[in-house]
Design a protein around this nucleic acid. Structure first.
Ligand SMILES: [Mn+2]
Ligand SMILES: [Mn+2]
Ligand SMILES: [Zn+2]
Ligand SMILES: [Zn+2]
Lengths: 138, 138
DNA sequence: AAAGAGAATTGTAATAAATACAAAATTAAA
DNA sequence: TTTAATTTTGTATTTATTACAATTCTCTTT
């Protein structure tokens, strides 16, 4: 269930991001990958189309996207950030073996709100770790 | 609500960890702090009692503790690991302003189990980020 | 079209958490 | 006491990410 964005440029502009070539390509890669890629995966996948692309640009752009709220940064074991274009609240499962991250249709119950009276909640995150079904069946 | 451990040495031995002086001190610090400290906080708080303590030993020891299951490693924004002596499943709130981490009495509903049929779940994590009540009232 | 201002991109250097590794020290066994 | 095994330590290394200045690009104004 890949994220559907008809017009990439329009989508960027709508979020006040100037649609430069690297930004368009990086957003395309995020949509295409659909698997919570890391910086290196994005960078390497674009080298053919954008040979002069700098890894710093990938970092910068992803930070711009995160600031604008069009990507979520997933920190699951601290080694590296993973990026998700699906900004609707949902959870994740990361496989310790293959490093794949799959989506979970889950959101944090509002009962925590009572515990966080007087707090400003900006983000709620849920994830699990373990071994995925594919890795288990090998 | 600090974790109550009567006999530190006995507790370590029970978990098959040889109770060396650094290990005892680091465990004591984890219990005493009660605030999900990072490596530097633990290290610095022990320098008076253990002037020869190496930061590598703190890293090693915390890894030993994590392996043995007597601490949980919290990765919330990837900058650094935080350590929790409370191993009962619960959630956390991290303040973007003061970096304090507070406990949340929450656990992931078992409804996710249905989504993870055939997966081996080793860990379930929940956390929120935002601004804590103390920082908001300043 | 040319010039200029502002923004984005790039390459390199710097940062910092965590690990690797081997030597020294400590502990336990014989 | 000797010896073996384990732990601790210091230093070097790794690696993801950021800092920063120079270059390039883009868009507006002349
Ligand atoms: Mn996702
Ligand atoms: Mn906790
Ligand atoms: Zn897997
Ligand atoms: Zn705070």
């Amino acid at each position: 269930m890949k994220k559907q964005i008809k017009d990439i440029v329009e989508y960027l502009v709508k979020h006040n991001i100037k649609p430069s070539y690297p930004r368009i390509k990086i957003l395309e890669a995020l949509i295409e990958k659909d698997s919570h890629p890391n910086v290196d995966e994005i960078y390497n996948s674009l080298l053919k189309d954008a040979p002069t692309l700098s890894k710093t640009t990938v970092y910068n752009t992803l930070n711009v996207f995160a600031e604008a709220g069009i990507v979520k940064v997933l920190i699951i074991d601290g080694k590296e950030a993973r990026y998700d274009i699906d900004t609707i609240e949902h959870g994740h499962f990361k496989c310790d073996n293959c490093d794949n991250i799959t989506d979970l249709n889950i959101s944090i119950d509002d009962k925590i709100i009572s515990e966080l009276q007087g707090f400003k909640i900006k983000e709620k995150r849920v994830y699990c770790k373990g071994i995925c079904n594919k890795c288990l069946s090998i």
